[in-house]
Amino acid sequence: MPSAVNINWYIALSSILFTIGVLGVLLRRNAIILFMSVELMLNSANLLFVAFARHLGQLDGQVLVFFVITVAAAEVAVGLALIVAIFRTKKSINIDEINLLKG
């Protein structure tokens, strides 16, 4: 076993977390859990950003994470407001019942 982990370990961890997030979006029907899965995906990307910042010795990765976190906060606020609004009209947050876009 090597004495310290390198960037590849983080890539592996990050891709596993990302895949779990993707599966959450594709498999779950509860819109709130869908959002949580999106957060998980963002988070796995963040982890990789920070790992690369450490790997390359540059601060930019951390700055980007800062932006991602900010955007995520905005996204969740708006998304949850949307969910609440949809729930009020449709009495459901099952995304399979929200198919008004059907052509």
Binding site: L26, I95, I98, G103
Partner: peptide, 18 residues
């Protein structure tokens, strides 16, 4: 013609993106 591809399920779109 193209309208028919729209199922209205968010999941279909996400799947397409993936």
């Amino acid at each position: 013609g193209l309208r028919l591809t729209q199922t209205g399920y968010a999941r279909t779109y996400a799947l397409a993106v993936l």
